[in-house]
Amino acid sequence: MNPFEVIYRLLVSFFGDDLADYLSGYVCPSEESEGGFLGSNHFVMYSIIALVVALVVMLVYYYAINSPKFNTWKSWLLMLLLVGMSNLLVGALNTSGNLAAGEIGECLVNGGNGGIYAYNCWMFGFANFLVSAIFFIIFSFAFKWKSTNCKYSPF
């Protein structure tokens, strides 16, 4: 299991094992194959998106905007929400799209033998929100010290 997946698996109670399996690359058994974790691991893609968004927003906040006007915890929280919400939408809309397009195997979706509803997709979005927020927090505390105006934001 790759390290990114480990983080998401800690939050699996939000979005359920079936969606987690799909995102890990699980393919339902069919006439052509026996099934298993044969597909690509989607967690890697979501992790990289979350990392990049968190990194870019952090750099913009601390080094591009870098304004004494916005060096409050409120401004920092707004940035965190921006990172989280954008990742929530990426996670939720993308998985919902996959679900609607029938790209998730029947053995995993509700109506077949699985338990994935649209609700699970939005809960995955929420999990993605949390993961990206953690990345933003880590990046903030790692890189804020060289910011002239925002080094003490959020505290």
Partner: peptide
């Protein structure tokens, strides 16, 4: 917009 008036002042002091 992001650095004007006293914000610009503080920006110079912080720099």
């Amino acid at each position: 917009i992001i650095k004007e008036n006293y914000d610009l002042f503080d920006d110079y002091l912080n720099g």
